[in-house]
Simulated assay, not measured.
Amino acid sequence: MTRSGGRWRLIVDGAAGGAWNMAVDRAMLVAHAAAEAPPTLRLYRWTPPAVSLGRFQSADDVDLPYCAAEGLEICRRPTGGRGVLHDDELTYSIVAGVADGLPRGVRRSYAVLCEALAEAYRALGVDASLTARDRGERGSGACYLHATSADLSLGAAKLSGSAQVWSGDSCLQHGSFVVDRDVTREARVFMLNDEHTRALERSTATIAAVIGRRPSWDEVTSAVAEAVGRVFSVELEPATLSGDELEMAGRMRQDHVVRSTLT
Rank of each mutant, 00 (worst) to 15 (best):
P39T: 06
A35E: 10
R108C: 03
W166Q: 06
R7I: 09
G105R: 10
V84N: 08
L172K: 01
R198I: 07
A59E: 13
L145T: 15
S242D: 12
R185N: 07
G81N: 02
D63V: 09
S222I: 07
V220Y: 07
G155Q: 04
S167C: 13
G18L: 00
V112C: 01
D100M: 04
T2Y: 02
E226M: 05
G71Q: 09
L85G: 07
P38Y: 08
Y121K: 09
D151V: 06
E237F: 00
R42A: 06
L236M: 00
A249W: 08
G14K: 11
V231I: 12
G18K: 03
A34C: 03
V84T: 03
N193C: 09
A15K: 08
T197E: 14
G175K: 04
A34N: 09
A239L: 06
G6D: 09
A150H: 14
S176R: 05
E247R: 15
E247Y: 01
G139R: 15
C67R: 10
A33R: 13
A223P: 04
A118G: 05
A187W: 10
T197S: 13
R42F: 02
P39C: 02
L154N: 07
Q164S: 08
A19Y: 01
Y66F: 15
L72P: 07
G54Q: 11
G81Q: 01
Y92W: 12
L200C: 09
C171V: 15
L200T: 11
P65N: 12
T47N: 10
M191I: 05
R185Y: 03
R7H: 14
R82V: 07
V126H: 02
V258Q: 00
L154S: 13
E245N: 07
C114K: 13
P38T: 04
R135I: 06
G161C: 05
R55V: 10
D182W: 06
L172C: 04
R77I: 13
S233M: 02
C67V: 13
D127E: 13
D255N: 11
F232S: 02
G5T: 13
V220P: 02
S149G: 11
L85K: 06
D13N: 14
L130C: 10
A199H: 14
V178W: 07
C75S: 15
A35Y: 08
L64H: 03
V179R: 15
V12N: 00
A120G: 11
A223Y: 05
V106L: 15
T197G: 09
T263H: 11
S153I: 02
S58Y: 07
G125W: 03
A150D: 09
S260W: 01
G139Y: 01
T91N: 12
A128D: 08
R138G: 11
L145A: 10
D127S: 06
T79Y: 11
A111G: 09
A156S: 09
H32A: 13
P215Y: 13
R253M: 07
V95F: 08
Y44A: 02
R107Q: 15
Y121C: 06
G6A: 04
P39W: 00
A34V: 00
S260P: 09
S260E: 05
G83Q: 01
T204M: 08
R230H: 05
A59R: 10
L130G: 06
H174M: 06
A116E: 02
L124R: 15
S233G: 10
C75A: 15
L200E: 09
S140A: 12
T197M: 05
V106C: 10
T184G: 14
E119W: 04
A120K: 01
D87T: 14
E119R: 15
S160D: 05
